[in-house]
Design a protein around this nucleic acid. Structure first.
Lengths: 225, 225
DNA sequence: GTCTGTTTGAAACATACGTTTGAAGCACAT
DNA sequence: ATGTGCTTCAAACGTATGTTTCAAACAGAC
């Protein structure tokens, strides 16, 4: 690995370790020793561990957010009259992610895994940070989705978006492990692009599924027959 | 809250706190003070924090596993010739979860959130514990899914199962937060049963989506249309 | 060379954690 | 009443964490 400055070395090490182990489970000492940097460097350059977490996210989220805005601009410009379709929106998102310049071949995996962790781990400060830093592309995505699925009620749409996010974040976040399993079991090689290519139709189909047809009733009978 | 014995008080408190904050972020001191129990009681009754985590899972997973096996038995008995359909399998799973006797009204939320955490926060010891304790119902579920989706290639099925798991684990693991957002934004109350009722059609539709229609190539052409 | 502002370094700090200890408390059979 | 086995308790232990300190090293300007 090239000899980078202290700040970047810390960010690289932190990014990788956070993605591997989560935030609370990664100590500053792990980060600084992986980065071959003095322990105090984190607090000197970033101020605190939480600020370092924010910086890790900002480093890839800020350019991604710009790329995404651009992709959405193009999309809306291309189809002036009708709103973009669900497939178009999802592909724009996917392509923006795939096209992001990666620091290494695992870039997308790490990227996705971190996003999943941001959602999943309870870190209140992170959620707050992401919400106030990147609310614009997010709500724009939501708004596009809304126009693309007018047949859905607001509540249905809300939940189905969560399902999409879940399938994506979860799969991508463990994509390396999943690719390994597939290689060992079926002898198949898979790229992240191919996973995305399988994911988008899945999501689109789920998003456009027929209405909820049944609510399970209250369980007043014995759980075992 | 009724005056239970020490072991149950610890399990109740731990379950709730783990679901709220995750495992690493929950200390034994939080647990014992919420349970109004001496700090040493955890190590006395369970041996270690990890063993306590296992016990929390075992308490609801063991009866759930039995319920599920029973539901699968019924399902296979009901349709002797044709294998159970995808919808039937998913509903059997959902109903088994919903019908589990709950300690309180948030029981299912906690239950689901813990399952989600088990997948995402994956503490190594937890994954190992779950795999060797509950591999049977899991592989049976996989096998049923295989028979229900003969039209899918093994690779497609594999990925789509991951997508389903992801959507489920992810949504359920943050179901309370998502319910809060929905309450504040749209003023809608949602039960876990309703989430499940929305999730199943989404999953079934995604699972049966038409074949992958396109693999994105090097990113210079537009994938849309 | 010397000064100046920035960055690194080794060490310590305060705090929180999981775990262990050993005495005290308790219920119950003898 | 006395002894016994299990449970609770306050206190301490050892370790790991995030953070701070302050001197040393460094780089660039004069």
């Amino acid at each position: 690995m090239a000899q980078l400055n202290t700040v970047d070395r810390i960010l690289d090490a932190a990014e990788e370790l956070f993605a591997e182990r989560g935030f609370s489970e990664t100590s500053l000492r792990m980060i600084t020793s992986k980065a071959r940097v003095n322990l105090a460097a984190v607090n000197y350059h970033f101020g605190s561990k939480n600020a370092l977490i924010h910086a890790v996210f900002a480093r890839f989220l800020t350019p991604f957010s710009a790329t995404l805005q651009h992709a959405f601009d193009e999309l809306e410009a291309r189809c002036e009259v009708d709103p973009p379709t669900l497939n178009q929106i999802l592909w724009a998102l996917t392509e923006s992610a795939v096209r992001m310049p990666q620091r290494n071949e695992r870039g997308i995996s790490i990227f996705m895994r971190l996003l999943g962790l941001a959602y999943t781990q309870s870190q209140g400060h992170l959620r707050k940070f992401l919400e106030q830093e990147y609310s614009e592309p997010f709500s724009r995505f939501m708004s596009l989705l809304k126009d693309a699925t007018p047949q859905l009620s607001a509540v249905d749409r809300y939940w189905r978006i969560q399902f999409m996010l879940g399938a994506t974040a979860f799969t991508m976040s463990s994509s390396e492990a999943l690719q390994d399993i597939l290689r060992n079991k079926l002898g198949v090689e898979t790229t992240v692009q191919e996973i995305a290519a399988r994911l988008v139709p899945f999501l689109a189909a789920g998003m456009q599924a027929p209405d909820t047809f049944q609510i399970p009733s209250a369980p007043d009978n014995s759980p075992v027959a």
